[in-house]
Structure formats: structure tokens, C-alpha cells
Amino acid sequence: MKLGKKLTGTLAIPVITLLAVWLICSSKGVALFETQLNILTFVRAIANVSLVTFALAINLNSGRFDFSVGSVALLSSVISAKIVLALNLGPVAMLLLSIVFGAIFGLISGAVYVSVKLPPIIVSLAIALFYEGLAFALTGGHGVSFANSANLLSFSTIPNLLIIIVIAVLFMVVVFDHTRFGYEYKALQSGQKVAVNTGIKEIPNALICYTIAGAFMGAQGFISATTNGTIQMSLNFGSISPMFMAFLPMFIGGFIGRFSNDKMGYLLGAVTSALISLLYVRLNVSSSVQQIVSALLLVCFLIYLNNEGVIRGLFVRKERAV
């Protein structure tokens, strides 16, 4: 594929979105990136969405649907926050602890899956309920608050968030594209039975996937908690909502992956989502309108993605007619 086509395919969606969002803001007399806060909001949204997208995609691409990602973020951030507040540690310690606990809870989730050998969606439902309940029990339902802690809240800056994003992307690219684990992962993804029959150990591969996904969600939980200094409890699947923000970036990532790297695609998908999110902030769009717009964008993009050939065919016929 020519470099030009690759670049076009890779950057088309985020660039078009940026243009559209900028035009809409301009028409309302509002600047998209008026202050540094707007850039921070944008970068934070990229960080949140990209981490959740990576976490979900790791398992979903292997046919493992995971409702428990939100509960892993919740539980790991609760435990790391409690430790940090008790020992008077700083935000880096909280981030590292959150990642470690996220990895542990992800591993437990994977271990349950490989032990009981039930469909992963079922296991994830049980894990989500369990982790939510555990977080609730650990905090007595009160959640955790550190809105007073300027130190912990100070982490959420543009450079720090960018560092997290870059490390996450590099990790994904290196581990999933340039290691034996990554090759085995892809083999299992595209032909599970054949891959297992050729000797690939599926169970360790799945466990590592869950662990990595958990680590990403631990990081996302940390970013979410240090945004406003509070961690609210959830019960009865209240924690599954973060999962839904990842679908559009994932599909965008899949599309971009044809032209370059799908991990870069997920990141650019997150950038696209973050631009839309910033538009909502700049125009103070109400919640119901946000939901409608987001749903329509997802459906329209999917329609395009699943009917690309037909849509292209229409234009080709028109060109021929002309």
C-alpha cells in the first residue's frame, strides 16, 4: 500500500472529526482550544478512552467480552487510594499501586475464567458483581475522598497524562506486535482451535491478556479518581458504563488498522472520541443530546464500515456514468 494511502486512511477520521468539531464551534462563536484547561480536558479524555479501549480490545478481539473492566478500575483505585492516604504517599505511588492491583484483579478474573471454563461474558458478570461488592464492603459504602489532597490531584497534568498515553501505546505495540506472546495471541485470535493444536498454550496467553487489561484499567481508575478527588461506589452493575465509551474507538481502530497499526488506530479512535467530548464541553451540550449524538455516530460509522464495498460501489458507478 502506498504511503499516501496509508497516511490518508490512518488520519482521515480524526482529521475530519477535528475539522467538523472546529467548524461547529466556530459557527457558535466558541474556540475549541481556548484555554489550557480545554487541552487538559482533551488529553484526559484521550487517556481515559484509550486505556479502556486497550483493555476491552485485548479480550474482545479474542471473543472474550468483559463486563468487569469498570469494576477492576473501581476496586484497584479504591485500594490504592486507601493505601496512599494511610501511608501519606504521593500520586506516582498511587498510580503504580493502582496498576499493580488492577493487574492482580485482572489476573484473578482470568484465573476464574480458565478454571471454570464458562463463556467469558458469564464470568465477567459474576466478577463485576463481586468486585463492586468488595469495593463497597472495603469502604463501608462511603467510597474514598481526597479532594483535599492537592498532592494527589496535582498529577492530572497534560505532560503526565501524555506520558501515560505514550507508554500505554508503546507497550501495546511492542508486546502485541513484537513478542512471541503477541504472535501467539494473534494466532489464537484468528484460529483458536488450529493454534491450540499446533501447541500454543492458550491458558497462559489468556491469563496474560486479562492481567494486562486489568493493569490498563488500574491506570484508568487512577486517572478517573484523581480527576476530582473522589471515588464513588457502584452496585448492581453500576460500574459497567465506562465500557461503552470504548466501542466507537475500537471500531475506528479496526478501520485504521487496515492502513497502519490497530493500536495506533485505537489511540486515534480515542482522539476522535475526545474531540467529540470536548465539543460537548465547549458547547455545554445536555446529557440527552450527547447520548443521541454518540449513538448516531456509532451506528453511522458501523453502517459505513460494514457496507464500505456497497457505498464505494455507488460512487464508482456514478463516476463511470459521468
Binding site: L129, F130, G133, A135, F136, A137, L138, G141
Partner: peptide, 10 residues
């Protein structure tokens, strides 16, 4: 307790 009850349910 709500949290413990949910864990038992799970």
C-alpha cells in the same frame, strides 16, 4: 450488608 450480599450473590 449490601456489599457482602452482592459478593455472595456473585
Amino acid at each position: 450488608d449490601s456489599g457482602v450480599g452482592q459478593m455472595v450473590k456473585a
